[in-house]
Amino acid sequence: MDPKKVIICRCEDITLEDVRNAIKEGYTSWDQLKRVLRIGMGPCGGKTCRILVLRELAQHLNVPIDEVKTRPTVVRPPLRATPLKVFAKEGK
């Protein structure tokens, strides 16, 4: 498995190699990787990539996945990408 060819984030086109390099640079939490790679910031909102990244972090840090540092959960809607006009209409 060539990490250059494994796509972890389809929205932002981020490979496993990108993730591993960023972890090596010291971005050792989901929240930091998101901010440095834009992983999880695309239309899927992290629903595809988050668990893959957490597993990668857990392996790198050699800890169980629930010990990987995350900030307190903040929900950032919408759950699915939604056009502005939907909300503009509701607001009238």
Partner: peptide
């Protein structure tokens, strides 16, 4: 979401069909 979408689609109508991905 309502106030922002109204203001944004009013000043930049091209945004109407653009998807919001995160707030």
């Amino acid at each position: 979401l309502e106030r922002m979408s109204q203001a944004a689609t009013s000043v930049l109508p091209m945004l109407k069909s653009v998807n919001i991905v995160r707030q």
